[in-house]
Design a protein around this nucleic acid. Structure first.
Length: 993
RNA sequence: GGGCCCGUAGCUUAGCCUGGUUAGAGCGCCCGGCUGAUAACCGGGAGGUCCGGGGUUCGAAUCCCCGCGGGCCCA
């Protein structure tokens, strides 16, 4: 086996999988129980980064794990292809800024084709870098795509179901709009886009009618909304000051007066009168923009003080300017008091002709002009700036504008109980996220499903042109065709999109001409129906019934209000139950400083770059093991190598070690069976066999809670700590020894452990595990085609020895203490000691008794003495250390025999180095000559010639001058000069197969 | 304004639910060792007012309360 070269191995393994169609075989049902996974479809815009990879690796890990547990896995891919993000990018590409331009310069047909083309572009990229290369074995051939006719139909289906249940309605409502994208956004979308922003902050006084000199002082951060101001609200219970300010009198909330006046820079003011909010009710004021906006002349009746509970006494003046067309609370108040709902702002964020002076201005421009006008009229008290959190468009970053408009809704608020009941049957990991989801559902608002856009599922609602109260909702393509009197000659995928859908002419007996509502559907409804649309569930009922509800879905935390919600919402609308059993909520990936990854900061690590830089499996190991799935992940490129490559190297070399010797000795698992050697196991064999089975049991426990990082750490730690550092270190001499066939006991033990280990590693590092399977397991058992087509072996309870594992832990602690003590004494591990004494209580000693030999080997002590009596090594001849009730001691002096042995080992080590430098194979024999000015060294070589020869695989070790032309090096050994010569001998290697 | 989460070594963190060895790792730093799988690795050391304060308790990183600081969500 060659050294580990991750990239080459991944390349080779990918080819192997492709040629043998392993992923297809992996997905083929084998009659087991079904683990049905529903892919949260990535949106096909933008390039995948490590955050996407993290999520996709959890999917992959969980699928592979369950496949190896014996489940059949349903692993269909899926893509979310429609919606604003795509449009935004196409607009950029085409160089257009408004919808009008799209219509006029390009036409919808061309625009939609461009959208399709862009989707195709990203699709290829996501398939390669976020799926195939990372080893995610989703079925991409049969992936669902939200732009397809057969998919869009299900969005229609659910909307029709809502209609049938009386949940679909249209309404006039104040909603957040993105003026750039010219469409309304849903609550969930608004939630995604809160950002810090600097806004104007102005104080305005409104003249109370009657020339009394009284004013209402109001504060706002959106001066433009004053254009549509219709009233002022006060809190009914609050107390208000009528403050005398240099002759004028202003109303301001008593509790806020001090702060407000301070901010306005007014020192000499006083409260001349205090009145409760309710007493101000009905006070009329002159509209501040009455002259500039003519329509307010007709609204004079409304311009007065109202009372409202929502008025804040924490900020502002305690008097709130009310624009029913621009604030949800204002709107409700307006409805309650019959105020005109004035919204002179268009969907693109500009004022229309009703806005008088402000006509044609954007809201920002209007804000500036409002400030100027008020200033000129002497109504502006103060104009400043404030930084606050304000909602922005989640796709394009434009600050949102609240305005009233007509939209279509699904009355989710009526289904709160149903949603909560549905959630009862769902397990949420990690648990804390359940509460959040629950409170979201408990307070869920009606879902605004209409969007004034182009590239999306057309809203399947038609209105009768003769009688606007008549509504027709169409739930399938078949139904559409049934009603259609004329239909464009295009394929289904096009037919269900603008502009083609609007070329369909529909007439029915009760209405001669139906006109479609000019909206598309919120994309969250697209992905939301994936539970049924992904498999064309109405036509594939049998398959669908088996999959539904899906066993498992996982996405990042923001999807609680996104996809997790839209899935359960649509499923509850249609059938009243949750579409999934388990959801795993993932945290986000941040940069190494804990900052969000963003193009703006330039700290995004893209998938392609990461894969090329680190290789897939090191990246997988890192992303899967570093943090709990639910936590934020601070991605530090330095750590990938540190944590992953090192561990993978060790794992790889464990197999190299095993392969080398097993091969050399002609080991064959079919012939040298572990079952035949069970009676001859050494204690470390029993221990490692127990450990591997315990690890499998612990793994199952961790995975039952989706503690993926700990599960992965567990397996890797086993490989690195237990297997490599401890077990292999212990059995090395047994493998080298040719005096008995004890090494076959080691091999058969190792083979058992390694094969199990590979299966445990397969879901974590599928490429490396497969390469090892090919090079190692298949070398002995060629019929085992792929580790990924195997099942985990059950836990072999008979192998488990919890007490031994505990004792071993104690022994390792003692070994560590001895190493520490040696360190302090300046005594190299290479130098043998006569004895190591362990003083501890009875129970600990009982644990250590069977492990004395293990301790003596690892501590390089001739013998291990166990004692309960502290005086055992209290004499001046010993040095001791103690820790947690256990003491260890080592003798200070060294006698001549041990000294000779130490010198011999020093020589051995140097010869080993030389062997390595000569690049000799492990089985090759050498001849050695040692020459020194030290009599001790000469004596050690002479006396321990056989020992040295055995250690370095020499056919001859002699004292004297090295041979002519052989490899010679001069060393310093304990102050003595030693010349060592090494040459290849004629002796044969160990007998091979 | 309300809710949830978090604060442990220079950095990243385990432990907290279920109170009880001397709070455990990894990285970095310093020292040493090992090397017939390993361009590897191993061991040791220094480094902690477990955010602060109060309470419960024989005993608190852990449970409770109050602050402070940070994050997320809702309004």
């Amino acid at each position: 086996m060659p050294p580990l070269d991750v990239r080459r191995i991944e390349e080779e393994v990918r080819r192997y999988w492709r040629e043998r169609r392993i992923p297809v075989k992996w997905r083929t049902p084998g009659g087991g129980r079904l683990f049905s996974f529903l892919e949260g479809p990535p949106t096909t815009n933008g390039y995948p980064h490590v955050g996407h990879l993290r999520g996709r690796l959890y999917k992959d890990f969980v699928l592979r794990y369950h496949r190896m547990l014996g489940y059949d896995v349903w692993a269909q891919g899926g893509w979310d292809e429609q919606g604003l993000p795509v449009e935004v990018e196409v607009e950029k590409k085409l160089g257009v800024r408004t919808k009008r331009e799209i219509y006029e310069r390009f036409g919808l047909e061309r625009f939609v084709e461009e959208c399709n083309r862009l989707v195709d572009h990203y699709l290829e990229y996501w398939k390669k870098y976020a799926t195939e290369l990372i080893g995610l074995w989703l079925d991409l051939e049969n992936a669902y795509e939200t732009r397809r006719g057969r998919y869009v139909e299900y969005v229609w289906y659910v909307i029709k179901r809502a209609w049938e249940r009386g949940l679909l309605y249209e309404g006039y409502r104040v909603l957040p709009f993105c003026p750039r994208c010219e469409t309304a956004l849903s609550d969930a979308e608004v939630d995604m886009g809160y950002e810090e922003r600097e806004s104007p902050s102005i104080y305005v006084k409104l003249r109370v009618e009657g020339g009394s000199g009284e004013h209402l002082l109001v504060w706002t951060t959106t001066p433009w909304t004053l254009v549509d101001n219709e009233a002022v609200a006060v809190h009914p219970e609050a107390e208000y000051c009528l403050a005398d300010v240099g002759g004028e009198r202003w109303y301001v909330a008593k509790d806020l007066a001090e702060r407000v006046m301070g901010e306005l820079g007014l020192q000499s003011w006083r409260c001349v009168e205090v009145r409760r909010g309710v007493e101000l009710r009905g006070l009329r004021y002159e509209h501040p923009l009455a002259e500039e906006v003519p329509l307010h002349a007709e609204h004079r009746e409304s311009h007065k003080v109202l009372d409202a509970e929502f008025v804040s006494l924490e900020e502002g003046t305690g008097l709130v300017h009310i624009a029913p067309g621009h604030g949800p609370e204002d709107f409700e108040l307006g409805v309650r008091y019959g105020l005109p709902v004035t919204s002179t702002v268009d969907v693109d964020g500009t004022f229309d002709e009703r806005a008088g002076l402000f006509k044609g201005l954007s809201v920002n421009e209007a804000s500036k002009l409002v400030v100027d006008v008020l200033s000129r009229k002497g109504l502006l008290v103060k104009s400043g700036k404030v930084v606050h959190r304000y909602p922005h468009c989640w796709r394009c970053g434009t600050p949102l504008v609240y305005r009233a408009d007509r939209q279509w809704f699904i009355a989710m608020s009526l289904l709160r109980e149903d949603l909560l009941r549905a959630l009862d049957s769902v397990e949420v990991f990690p648990r804390v996220h359940r509460n959040r989801f629950e409170s979201w559902l408990a307070n869920v608002k009606d879902w605004t499903i209409s969007r004034s856009r182009i590239w999306g599922t057309p809203l399947p609602i038609w209105r009768c042109s003769d009688d606007s109260s008549k509504i027709l909702v169409i739930g399938s393509i078949e139904e559409l065709k049934r009603y259609a009197s004329k239909i464009p000659d295009v394929d289904e995928d096009r037919l269900v999109h603008r502009p083609w859908i609007d070329e369909v002419e529909i007439g029915t007996p009760d209405c001669s001409r139906w006109v479609r509502e000019p909206f598309v559907v919120d994309v969250w409804l697209d992905s939301g129906v994936a539970w049924i649309a992904s498999v064309d569930g109405l036509r594939n009922g049998e398959l669908f019934e088996r999959l539904f509800p899906y066993t498992f879905v996982t996405e990042a935390v923001d999807q609680t209000r996104g996809w997790f919600y839209s899935l359960i919402a649509t499923s509850v609308v249609d059938r009243g139950v949750a579409p999934y059993r388990q959801i795993l909520v993932q945290g986000h990936v941040l940069d190494k400083f804990g900052r969000k990854m963003s193009k703006h900061l330039g700290n995004v690590v893209y998938a392609e770059e990461a894969i090329k830089r680190f290789g897939v499996d090191p990246l997988r190991l890192y992303l899967l093991s570093r943090y709990p799935p639910g936590d934020s992940f601070m991605f530090d490129p330095e750590e990938v190598r540190r944590l992953s490559t090192g561990a993978l190297n060790i794992v790889w070399n464990v197999f190299r070690f095993a392969a080398m010797y097993m091969d050399l000795d002609g080991f064959s698992p079919g012939v040298h069976r572990l079952s035949d050697y069970l009676g001859r196991l050494s204690v470390e064999d029993e221990w490692i066999l127990s450990r591997v089975n315990s690890v499998m049991a612990e793994l199952a426990d961790l995975m039952s809670r989706y503690e993926i990082n700990r599960a992965v750490q567990l397996v890797v730690d086993f490989a690195v700590e237990d297997l490599s550092r401890t077990y292999l270190k212990l059995v090395r001499p047994r493998v080298w020894s040719e005096v008995s066939d004890d090494r076959f006991v080691v091999y058969s033990t190792l083979y058992y452990v390694l094969k199990r280990l590979l299966k445990l590693l397969a879901p974590v590092v599928p490429h490396v595990a497969e390469a090892l399977w090919i090079h190692f397991v298949r070398h002995f058992e060629p019929e085992e085609e792929s580790v990924h087509l195997t099942r985990f072996d059950g836990v072999d309870e008979g192998m488990r020895k919890p007490q031994l594992e505990e004792s071993f832990g104690t022994a390792m602690r003692v070994v560590g203490m001895l190493a520490s003590l040696r360190n302090r004494m300046g005594l190299k591990t290479r130098w043998p000691v006569r004895e190591a004494v362990v003083v501890a209580e009875e129970g600990v000693l009982r644990q250590l008794e069977p492990l004395k030999d293990v301790v003596s080997r690892l501590a390089n002590a001739k013998r291990v003495v166990l004692a309960t009596d502290p005086s055992a090594c209290r004499s001046g001849d010993y040095e001791s250390a103690q820790e947690g009730g256990v003491a260890v001691c080592l003798p200070r002096g060294i006698d001549r025999d041990l000294y000779m042995e130490a010198l011999a080992r020093e020589i051995v080590r140097r010869i080993q180095v030389m062997r390595k430098e000569m690049d000799l194979g492990v089985a090759e024999f050498i001849e050695v000559a040692v020459e020194s000015d030290s009599e001790d060294v000469v004596a050690a070589v002479r006396d321990l010639r056989d020992y040295i020869a055995g250690e370095v695989r020499a056919s001859e070790v002699r004292v004297g001058e090295p041979w002519e032309g052989c490899f010679v090096k001069t060393w310093d050994v304990e102050g003595a000069t030693v010349r060592i010569g090494v040459r290849r001998s004629q002796g044969s290697g160990r007998a091979g197969p």
